[in-house]
Design a protein around this nucleic acid. Sequence first.
DNA 1: AATGAATGAGAGTTCATTCAT
DNA 2: TATGAATGAACTCTCATTCAT
Lengths: 199, 199, 199, 199
Amino acid sequence: MTQTARRPRTRRGQETRAALLRAAEEVIGAKGFAAAAIADITRAAGIAQGTFYIYFDSKEHVFRELVLEMGRLTRKTLSDAVAHAPDRLTAERLGLRAFLEIAATRPTLYNVVMEARFVDPGSYDAYFQAFSKNYTRNLSAAVAEGTIRPGDAAIRSWALMGMAVTLGERYGLSRAHTDADRDRVVDEVFDMLERGLRP
Amino acid sequence: MTQTARRPRTRRGQETRAALLRAAEEVIGAKGFAAAAIADITRAAGIAQGTFYIYFDSKEHVFRELVLEMGRLTRKTLSDAVAHAPDRLTAERLGLRAFLEIAATRPTLYNVVMEARFVDPGSYDAYFQAFSKNYTRNLSAAVAEGTIRPGDAAIRSWALMGMAVTLGERYGLSRAHTDADRDRVVDEVFDMLERGLRP
Amino acid sequence: MTQTARRPRTRRGQETRAALLRAAEEVIGAKGFAAAAIADITRAAGIAQGTFYIYFDSKEHVFRELVLEMGRLTRKTLSDAVAHAPDRLTAERLGLRAFLEIAATRPTLYNVVMEARFVDPGSYDAYFQAFSKNYTRNLSAAVAEGTIRPGDAAIRSWALMGMAVTLGERYGLSRAHTDADRDRVVDEVFDMLERGLRP
Amino acid sequence: MTQTARRPRTRRGQETRAALLRAAEEVIGAKGFAAAAIADITRAAGIAQGTFYIYFDSKEHVFRELVLEMGRLTRKTLSDAVAHAPDRLTAERLGLRAFLEIAATRPTLYNVVMEARFVDPGSYDAYFQAFSKNYTRNLSAAVAEGTIRPGDAAIRSWALMGMAVTLGERYGLSRAHTDADRDRVVDEVFDMLERGLRP
DNA sequence: AATGAATGAGAGTTCATTCAT
DNA sequence: TATGAATGAACTCTCATTCAT
């Protein structure tokens, strides 16, 4: 008869749950999963410790929700960013730029996804497999329509995602870099990607 | 402050310390830092729990040692692999191949470094900064001598390292992939990098 | 830093905290600080081990609280005892008598303060400095009004406090001595103090 | 067949044992019994940890030896100091002065004896009972020969010892006080003791 | 829906002591 | 006699989770 996390049925409940999610993002994203105590989260949310378990089954549970949220956010942001791209390569460029922007804007959420590899590999894999799948489809299409040179789309997708992730970490998360820096990063990287390293 | 980790003074001590390092790599690399208990490590090493603290100050301490070890290993492996490369681009290709091989051969150590971002950011940064520095120098030299097209070497180094890291994760760690797969990955990726995506 | 001892917010919490203080006094006063395990204290209080840390940050923390409590108790008891003394010397006598009574009545708390010298020198010093200050002021006043012979009040205060403490230990703590014994001790000591040892 | 502490049979053994005693006094007297680790002691003595147990059965064992040593030292020092006293009261005065000197000269050993109350009550009691016994005998004799006014010698002995102990702590141990301070303390205290507080 | 107290398993760490050399 | 490694019991403290109100 143990109680299990419910969906909020009232306005107040919705707000509490939302506050918990924000607090969890903040705390976990800043201190890391292990160092983040439920007490830290509820304190940050300004509610009692017990309340946490009304909305989430466990610490892992909120964590997973956050990863899913980042998935939705990334998908939405990228598809918006790419919506009016004139061609595939430009779409890629805009996608990378948008991704760096996410890292800069939501650094804690970004951290959460990265840590998922160690905290909840399942959702980590799901996150990246989803992107890879989509990415691979786009790249294949681009090849098919002759926009880019032929090549293994899956491998390329992982290579490009790896780049994006690390660039997000270095030039997005870091408070030391500006929007202009990120613009330049995208330019440099796409110069390399489009035209290759050969002289 | 009362006692601090000693360097072993006898043969036996050296062996014990080494056994602990191996066990720590195994256990932490497999279960993750948080889930790995000191008891797990000493059990794996076949020694008493207290013995751990003769050689290491804390769990973080062994962890840091492992990251350093991975640093040495990577440096050595890559420099060996690249030693007889005819030109810069080939060197890069050999370097990536060797890196994937490390991931395949020492997956647990690989995991440790990746988790360092969350467990001991200092050593994580040190690890990658060192490689970036070296990488950047090589890329600059290549530009200078006309082997590759001009471009920001630092940004390129992070982009390339990001690729390598993720490819190591996907095609190196995974038991599902073979040496041949890794060869192909390197071919594909270098095709893209050298000649670019443009048709 | 993640969590810190709370002040209880409910009746139940207050009772639990109080029970812990009593149990700590009992156990630490009886076995000594080092030998007293938190588990002993919580067992004596009839609660779970973890509950201790809801109300106290550490073993040192309860210990300090006990020393403070002894400070309050002693101040209150002595000032009550002395309230209606007709003159300074009588006040001193009543004060000593009351002090011995405290030792007899709260032996464990008495022990705690004595051990504070080794466990928490800060609170030990605070305890005695406070008394010395007060004592010194009284002695100075007595000299000023001609009730006692001139002499360095600070030195006298330490000498008299030293006497009191040791007599409390020998004739107060010990179950072998009775109230009558303590009366006699006070008589003897004050005979010496008032009239001196010279024939 | 467990090995037990032996008396040293060689010159070298004697030196090692002596070094351990000195180191134990230093370390235990400075950090307190609980905080002093055997490793601290052997490190201070410049010998290996295991060697400790060649000469002492346990940590308590060295501690007890130190208390005994302090007993011998105090007895010797006081009896030397008092040897040529012209009368009983002067002897008391010289005794107190010598005692303060011990505190100033051997502060760590002094601390050890004080802590004995909590670490090894048996030797603590033995230490003070021995002095009280002797003290009581002297005071009785003084009364008998008319040098001091009649009064309970045992009670007086504890009162006077209590004074001495606390004065030793405040004016002897403290590096803030000088020999001159201690002279004055003795003067003040004996003025009070001899002539009484009454105007 | 919310609160705050309570739980108790479990983790890291210390250290007196023993052992093999 | 001395060494330094090894042991393992014991202890403090943390924290996810549950419970009563």
